[in-house]
């Protein structure tokens, strides 16, 4: 092969050239264009701005203004789709196909329970809690190909998605996190470095209490008995045989859930994690225990 290879070729050309130094390097020709104002016939006169008016003075009319007509955007009656949009919670979508490709390329370890923190850790899901984003909306794209047995916790899920996860013997929970805990989930290392104690998770606001307490949506505040009934119901509705979780080798992993007041798996509120000395500080004070036990 040898010199037909592009890298080898350029390196071997370099061998016969003078030593690269400050005096003989340069940027690619044409990479920097200095803006110059032409004179006379070289683009002079009006410099492309045209004669008089808006072109020269940059006094563009405001967007939608029709020089006195009743503007288009005012001609029809109001349709307030976006009223209060800045107060609404946003759940950026993650499709089952994306989730499956994260699992296939080992970005997510399915032998452990999957939550928001592990999906953000994969680096391929953009999540901005400061923009009123409240977690993952797992969507049903790729529900047919989805074939992973997982214990996943998301913030919003449709019926098809729940069916797709449960058909493969998995478990899905929908859980609410308040913005402060979402920041911790986004960057746990940054939080541990601050040396603060892990806070409690807040309870959901009134308008989603119903969602997170109902068994149909697999809410984290729902009755487990009812959830198992709903699992059976859903399997009958979609026509698949519900795999027995009890007989599974991953039974313990599939049963792992967070406490409604817990943010991270296995770490209780009130604990302080010291990354440097690899130790955990657990409160023993009665007052703190009472506070963190909710």
């Amino acid at each position: 092969m040898g010199s037909r290879q592009i890298t080898e070729k350029s390196l071997s050309i370099l061998r016969s050239l003078p030593r690269i130094s400050v005096g003989n390097i340069r940027d690619n020709p044409g990479s920097k264009v200095t803006q110059k104002r032409g004179r006379g016939q070289h683009g002079g006169d009006k410099h492309g701005a045209g004669n008089k008016g808006s072109g020269q003075r940059q006094n563009y009319m405001r967007l939608g203004y029709e020089t006195g007509n009743n503007p288009f955007y005012l001609r029809m009656p109001q349709e307030p789709y976006y009223r209060g949009h800045h107060h609404r919670r946003e759940y950026p979508p993650l499709s089952l196909l994306q989730l499956q490709s994260l699992i296939d390329t080992d970005r997510i370890d399915v032998s452990l329970p999957v939550d928001l923190a592990s999906i953000i850790k994969s680096g391929l899901y953009n999540f901005y809690p400061e923009q009123k984003q409240f977690g993952i909306n797992l969507t049903d794209e790729g529900a047919d190909i989805f074939a992973a047995k997982i214990n996943i916790e998301v913030q919003w899920a449709s019926e098809q998605v729940i069916a797709a996860v449960e058909r493969n013997g998995g478990v899905i929970t929908t859980a609410y996190y308040d913005p402060h805990s979402l920041f911790l989930l986004k960057n746990p290392k940054h939080f541990f470095k601050t040396g603060a104690a892990i806070p409690r998770r807040m309870i959901p606001p009134p308008d989603v209490i119903e969602y997170y307490t109902s068994a149909e949506t697999r809410g984290y505040l729902a009755d487990p008995e009812k959830i198992s009934q709903e699992r059976l119901k859903l399997s009958q509705k979609y026509g698949y045989e519900l795999p027995q979780v009890e007989n599974d080798s991953f039974y313990e992993m599939l049963c792992e859930r967070k406490d409604p007041r817990q943010i991270f798996y296995g770490l209780e509120p009130g604990w302080v994690v010291n990354l440097k000395d690899k130790c955990i500080l657990k409160p023993t004070d009665k007052e703190l225990l009472r506070f963190y036990s909710s």
Partner: peptide, 9 residues
């Protein structure tokens, strides 16, 4: 033995 890009240097 990367591509020696003089412009990037």
């Amino acid at each position: 033995a990367a591509m020696p890009r003089i412009d990037i240097i």
